[in-house]
Structures are given as C-alpha cells and as structure tokens.
C-alpha cells in the first residue's frame, strides 16, 4: 500500500493536485477509501485527516467501504425515472437478496449503486454493469445478465 500512496503523493506534488484529486487517486487504486491510506497521506501532508473525511463523505464518487467485484450502476435521471427505473432497481435488489440499506451483497460479489443522471436519456432506463452501458433496460434483460455473471463464476470453480 505504501508504494501506491507514495506515488499518489508524488503525482499530487507534481501536478498541482488537491485533496479531491488525492482521494480520486486513492479510490482508483483501492476501489474505496481505506482509513489508513487517508491517515498516511494526511500525516505526510500535515493536514488533519478529518478534512479528508469531510471531502470523502461530501462527494458521491467516494466509497468508504470496499465494494463488490461486480458493480451495477443504476441511473436515476429524470428520463430513467419516468420510464420506471425504480421498479427495476427493486427487482434487482430482490434478485441479489440485498439487505435493506446495503449496497453490496454479503459475499462481496455485487454492488448495486444509484448515480445521478449519466446523460444517456435517449436510451432510458439505463444501467451500467461492469462499465458496460445497457440502454432500454428491462427486468428480464438485467436479471439474465446478472445470472450469467453468477453462472460464469460458478463454472470457474
């Protein structure tokens, strides 16, 4: 971890970085914001880590908990809303057996998160599964996709 953090520190100093770009680098490197990474950088920069925490909790892009291997992103824009994205999200929660208030399944396989409008409104409702955009999504198509991810994992065993 320290090597990665040292690189982040170096990049920050060379490229006019700021606390947000540091957190973006941490998120990219670890998939979330580990507390000890924040503490390490905070002590090197002589900034109280509480300032980092304030920023990390302000912006939606930062996650304080590790996330699942597969990321399902539901667009919550207006067009997706009027085309029924809420119902699809509820369907996915059932399929993944997500406990209320949680984003990530217990086995750390899936994370289902909502994001603000991604601007692909013409093909609403939109879901992104592992960075691939699925437009005009339907319950059937989404569940099929998720089952195929689950299936390929089982085959791998």
């Amino acid at each position: 971890m320290e090597k990665t953090l040292e690189k982040i520190l170096k990049d920050t100093r060379e490229n006019e970085g700021n606390l947000i770009s540091i957190l973006q680098d941490i998120e990219n490197a670890f998939g979330y914001i580990p507390e000890n990474a924040v503490n390490w950088l905070a002590s090197k920069l002589d900034i109280n880590p509480s300032i980092f925490y304030g920023i990390a909790t302000f912006y939606a892009q930062f996650h304080l908990k590790p996330r699942g291997k597969n990321i399902i992103t539901a667009c919550c824009g207006t067009a997706c809303h009027v085309k029924g994205s809420d119902r699809l999200i509820n369907g996915l929660k059932q399929e993944l057996a997500l406990p209320e208030g949680e984003e990530t399944t217990k086995n750390m396989e899936f994370t289902l998160e909502k994001v603000n409008c991604i601007g692909a409104c013409s093909i609403a409702p939109v879901f992104i599964i592992n960075k691939k955009v699925h437009g005009k999504a339907s319950a059937d198509k989404l569940i099929k996709e998720i089952r195929s991810i689950k299936g390929s994992k089982n085959e791998g065993k």
């Binding site: 507390e35 109280n48 880590p49 509480s50 980092f52 304030g54 909790t57 302000f58």
Partner: peptide, 20 residues
C-alpha cells in the same frame, strides 16, 4: 488544528472527527 470538519451533506450533514 482542524480536528473536526463537516462531513456528509444535506440533512445528513454532521460535524465530526476523522472517520467519526
């Protein structure tokens, strides 16, 4: 010192030390 800062936003905003 900066031991505390605003965290979260909107109605959930709170003032807390690092990682609460």
């Amino acid at each position: 010192v900066g031991a505390i800062d605003f965290a979260y936003r909107g109605f959930k905003s709170k003032i807390c030390p690092t990682f609460e």
